[in-house]
Structures are given as C-alpha cells and as structure tokens.
Design a protein around this nucleic acid. Structure first.
Lengths: 226, 226
DNA sequence: GCAAAAATGATAGTGTTACTATTATATTTG
DNA sequence: CAAATATAATAGTAACACTATCATTTTTGC
C-alpha cells in the first residue's frame, strides 16, 4: 500500500494554483513549508512574506504559484481530502459486508493521522492538524457559492457522497444519509479540536478516540441488517 | 414570555469590551449595525472604518467600545449563546419527562431563528445568520487556549454542559454525552450552513428542518426509558 | 557549449488594514 | 453654567496584500 501511494498524484482543481506546485522543487517547498508555518503560527498570522523568509525564497516567487493565501489553503485542504479519499477507497475496497465497510470507512475518515508517509514533501500528520484548525475558514466566506461552482470543494463533496452511499448500503431507508455523512466528516474535525482545546466538551481523549464515538453513534442510528 | 425577555440583560464577559456597549446609544448602534454589516459583507471584509461610515460615526469612537473586531465577534456570539441559553431554560423549565425535555432542548438549540424580537437593538434573525457563518472563526485561532482561560467562551461551554446533563437524564449510561451535546450544537450550525450553500450534502431544506434530523439521531442513539 | 527561454530573486510602489495618539467639538451632569 | 465625559476629526505608523519591473540564475534545445 505504501508503494501504491508513492506513485500517486492527488489531482486538485488546477484553478487553485497559477503554476502547478508539483512541477518544481520550489513549488513543493512552498507547499511543504506552508503546512508547517500555518501549523506553527496559524492561518491568520501566515503571510507569503513570512513563508518566503522561512524557505529562503522571495515573496514574489510564491505569488507565481498561488494567487493568495486563501487559494493556497484551498489547495492544501483539497489535497488532504483527496488523500483521505484514496485511503477510504483502499480501506473499503475488499469488504463485502456493508456494516463492516461502513465501520472501516468511519474509522479511516475520523481517525487522527499518526504516521507520516515521508514519501512526499507533505507531512500528513501536520497537514491533518492544519485541516482541523483551518478547514472551516476555507468555506465560511462570502465567496463560497462562487468557489463551489468553480469546483474548489469538489473532492470534499465527493467524499461526503461516498460516505452517504456506504450509509445507504447499510440502511436503504435511513432518512438523513447526507446529513449523517456530513456530520461525521465535519464532526470528526470538531471532536479532534475539542479534545485539544475544550476537553470538558467531549469524552474523546488519549484513550477514547473520536472514531469510537462516531461508530457507536452511527451503528445505533441505522437499522442494521443483522 | 416576550415581556420577560424584554427586561432581560444578557451578561457577557466584561473583558470582551472596553466600554459596555449597552450603556449608551452609540454602543447599541455599534452592536446592532455590526451584526447587519457582518451579515452583509462577511467578517473578513468587515472593518471598524466601514462600520463607522454606516452608522455615521467615527472609527476611533468604535475603538472605545471594542479593542478589535475579533473581540466584537466574541461579544456578539457570546450574546447569542446567552440568549439561546435563556430560551433553553425557559423552554424546558416545566417539563418533567426527560425525553420530552431533551426533545424540547434540541428543538430550541437547533432550530433556525425566525422571529425578530424587535424589543432590543439586536436583530436575532440576522445574528443567527452571523453565528452560522462566523462562530467557528472565533475559536479556530492560536489564541483559543488563552481566551478560553479568560472565560471568553464560558457561555457556550455552559450551554454544552446543560445539554449534556439533559442527555444524561434520559440515559445515565450513555458513554458520550458531552461529545453528543457538542455535536448537536456545532452540527446544527453546520447543517444550516450546508442547506444554504451545499444543498447536496444534507437532507435539510425548507421542509426538513435540522431539528428533525438531530431529534431522530439522538432518540435512536440513547436508550430511552420507555 | 552556447544561446534562448524560463524560473527565480530583488526592489519598489500602491492602497488597505489595524490600529495609536492627539486635539477639537459636542453632550451630559452636578 | 462649569466641569466632566463622550464623541469626532485628523494624522500617523507598521504590517499586509498585493502588482510591476528589472536583474540574475537555471534549465533546455540545438
């Protein structure tokens, strides 16, 4: 599986970048270090000037890859969800039983990223943290409808639909499959955030993982064909 | 009930403002119109200068009430959650049956605000929209731990605990009461957002309300004492 | 190996934001 | 009515979010 991922390129919407950052060493450096810097100082304090300073490169060069930091965030989060989508597909590919498949799907989508693949220039563990802290900011804007039409959230949308379909395969009559799927994806990020910053608002911690909570929630909500 | 709310002042953390905006006409104007302007142009594009222009007042005068727009957002959202807390307490006060109480609680906390009280300078319908679009931004920051220690999220935290306790009164053995409570509050905002901007990711719409989804979800998850 | 093309770096400049400070004017209050 | 307080007006600063131009380095095709 590791080898498979090594040769895999995650395709994000080309309109998110001016020049494909995968196409050059500098581009990869921009992407890789932007994740580290956003994680370090937060998206609000992150600027292209600071990123340039960190990678020993010029602000103006970064603008040749990304129009602005908002587009960069959309790129990073799209890449993350594309990566998650691959994990979902691989992890559930050979499971025939719908309930098992759903459980595996929830496990993959709600767990915390723990191993850095080291294969690419992207540190997925740190990117996961960035997504937890910053993903909402990418769509909570006045430009969301325009950007959604342009397909900037296409991968995430597709992921919700995939999960919805797995839910439906378990319980064809469940009346809220899309809402449940979106609640799981968004709620998982939220529970991870709460366990770091508002520990009294969640049971999740070092021992109890968000996955357990969501698997319990979904199993009891759906009518299982047992 | 309307009359009760009329004489009620919602107490937000005094460290969120420099001068209490409730103490003057200008202060109320700042709060009331900031809600309208944030709703109109979004928090990112909102500035004290623009707000000053809208209310025919000076930027510098607004700084005498709020340190910066982040603190103003914390003030507005705290007010909103305080207002929701009152609604929760009143709506559930005389219900003895735990299941009924929980259903009423979820109804109050997840429904969309539809009637403007008109009593105060605050338009709760618009404030509800602002909270849906902007609340996450108030805590998804590098300063969250410091600000949480200062009690800037105290009302919201308290609200989650209230809901958690109602959940526990229905099912004393449910293992994730806090996570479920936080999922309901946060998830409700999210579902309202989705129905406006990502309608394919939710079943909620004009006819199916998020409340129905959450009541269904919670009822099936908890072991009801029936 | 070299010329042309492409990529990157350096510098400068613009309008906006997010303030702070100061002073002037209006309003309230004792 | 004077003193206190609140508000307005103006100016100024540093950072941000870019755009434009030109110089330099690196890559590539022959």
């Amino acid at each position: 599986m590791e080898n498979l991922f090594a040769s895999l390129k995650i395709e994000v919407n080309p309109n998110l970048y001016v020049k494909d950052p995968e196409s050059s060493a500098l581009g990869k450096k921009i992407v890789g270090h932007s994740i580290l810097l956003i994680n370090e100082i937060g998206f609000e304090h992150f600027t292209f000037k600071k990123l340039g300073a960190q990678i020993g490169s010029n602000e103006s060069s970064i603008y040749r890859y990304f129009e602005n930091k908002h587009k960069l965030l959309l790129y990073l989060t799209s890449w993350y969800w594309g990566w998650k989508e691959y994990q979902l597909v691989f992890a559930t590919a050979n499971i025939q039983n719908p309930e098992e498949k759903l459980e595996a799907a929830i496990e993959v989508l709600t767990r915390c990223v723990e191993k850095d693949s080291i294969i690419s220039h992207i540190d997925e563990v740190i990117l996961n943290k960035v997504v937890i802290n910053e993903y909402s900011k990418s769509y909570l804007s006045k430009e969301v409808d325009k950007e959604n039409k342009e397909g900037f959230f296409a991968i995430y949308n597709r992921l919700v639909v995939r999960l919805k379909n797995i839910i439906l395969s378990v319980d064809r009559n469940y009346p809220f499959p899309s809402s449940l799927a979106s609640t799981i994806l968004e709620g998982a990020l939220h529970q991870h955030f709460l366990k770091e910053h508002f520990s009294s608002l969640t049971e999740c911690n070092d021992k109890i993982r968000p996955s357990e909570y969501f698997i319990h929630l979904v199993s009891s909500t759906l009518n299982l064909n047992k």
